[in-house]
Amino acid sequence: MTSLYGYVGVPEMGAGFRQGLSSGLELEAKAKLDYFRLAGIFEVGARREVVTRETAALAPTLSLGLVLNSGTSYLDEENFGGVLLRVSPGLVSGWRAGETVVLMGLVDAPIDIGLSPTGAWRIQTLVGGGPEIYLGQGVTLLVSGQIGLEHFKEERQDWNTRLGYQIKLGIGSRMF
């Protein structure tokens, strides 16, 4: 399967391309804009289904990328700037609730590691999900929400913890 998708949400929006291989592995490239932090995020990754049943599927994911964070504190008072390496493990599950609806479960744990010697880090653990609705002609609509904790360490500062969240409204198209 080859697909192209885009989404808007809070605190970010993005677009991506996914290519399935005959081995059941899917490769993905995505670009995101976190507009609360004015950060560009670029990732490449892979996903492979490890459980496939008639009505359920489970696939771990792993991405590697780069975060270019401006450090602006206009919408996020605790933001810090810099270039960070992103390692993003996750898990996607799906349960077919009807002919055109799949209920998605999502776990994401992006880890951002500062590439300067100042010791900046950000780790989020987000869980949630939502429905993916098939609209016809290879087009799907996804509405999802995730909540969890965000731990971060600014340059030369102590660790902080706060609520983390993600809300998305996305549309995808299977091209082949």
Rank of each mutant, 00 (worst) to 15 (best):
L68R: 11
V83L: 06
L84E: 12
E132G: 10
P117H: 01
L27E: 05
L106Y: 06
L21T: 08
M175D: 00
P11M: 11
S70G: 08
V51N: 02
G136V: 08
L169D: 06
N160R: 14
V127K: 05
M175A: 02
R53M: 11
S3Q: 15
V127Q: 07
P131E: 11
A39Y: 00
L142P: 04
Y165M: 13
V83I: 09
W95F: 14
R86H: 06
K30A: 09
Q166E: 13
V51I: 11
S116R: 09
E150F: 03
M13C: 13
E26Y: 13
L163I: 06
F152E: 07
L91N: 00
S173V: 10
I111M: 12
P117I: 00
R96Q: 15
L33P: 01
E155V: 07
F36Y: 14
G81T: 03
V107H: 05
V143A: 15
E150N: 09
G98M: 02
R122T: 13
R162C: 03
T161Y: 03
V87S: 13
L106R: 14
E99Y: 14
I111W: 10
G65V: 04
D158G: 07
S144M: 05
R48Q: 12
A39L: 01
V139H: 04
L115H: 05
G40I: 02
R162D: 11
V10P: 00
V8L: 13
T2P: 00
T140H: 12
L58P: 01
L142Y: 02
T161C: 03
Y74A: 13
L91E: 03
D76I: 07
R156C: 03
G71S: 05
L4I: 13
G20L: 11
L85H: 01
F152A: 10
V83W: 00
K32E: 15
Y35A: 04
Q166F: 10
I133M: 09
Y134T: 13
L163C: 00
I41V: 09
A46L: 12
S144N: 12
S73E: 15
G45E: 04
Y35L: 02
L126F: 04
K168L: 09
S23L: 08
E150I: 08
F80C: 01
S88L: 03
L142R: 15
P11F: 10
D158Q: 08
L58W: 07
